[in-house]
């Protein structure tokens, strides 16, 4: 229980990743694979944020005077996550576009049937 309590953040982040990877590897539906990709990215973003967290820290914004820089959380991972999210958006948008096209060609999204290119 104690373990769970202390590691719940990591479990959350990596749990998402695990589910996402499992989906990508096993699910047959292309859309599900793409959703899995989204899961993985989200998990990683969560992990990045956790890394930057400081116990009882505040947001790194000097909105009023007298805030202690030492008590602020790390701003860098937040910046990274911002970038990562945008990247993820681009990838997912492209993936969905491809999926639409692929459906147009194969009339199915079952990846086991989409095997025009092999060997």
């Amino acid at each position: 229980m104690d373990f769970l309590y202390h590691n719940i953040h990591f479990i959350g982040a990596f749990g998402l990743m695990f589910i996402g990877l499992y989906m990508i590897a096993v699910k047959k539906n292309l859309i599900k694979k793409i959703i899995g990709l989204g899961f993985v990215e989200t998990g990683i973003n969560l992990f990045l944020i956790i890394i930057g967290y400081i116990k009882n820290g505040t947001a790194p914004i000097f909105s009023k005077a007298g805030l202690d820089p030492a008590r602020m959380v790390d701003p860098v991972p937040q910046a990274l996550v911002l970038t990562a999210i945008v990247i993820n958006v681009a990838i997912l948008a492209l993936a969905l576009g491809l999926a639409i096209r692929l459906y147009g060609h194969y009339k199915t999204l079952n990846v086991e049937k989409i095997r025009g290119l092999k060997w």
Binding site: I87, A95, L98, A99, R101, L102, H105, I114, G116, L117
Partner: peptide, 17 residues
Amino acid sequence: GIEAATKYLIQGSLGSA
């Protein structure tokens, strides 16, 4: 082309992750 791109995308973005 579309099929290859889809496969490439999934593998590639997994790598990026």
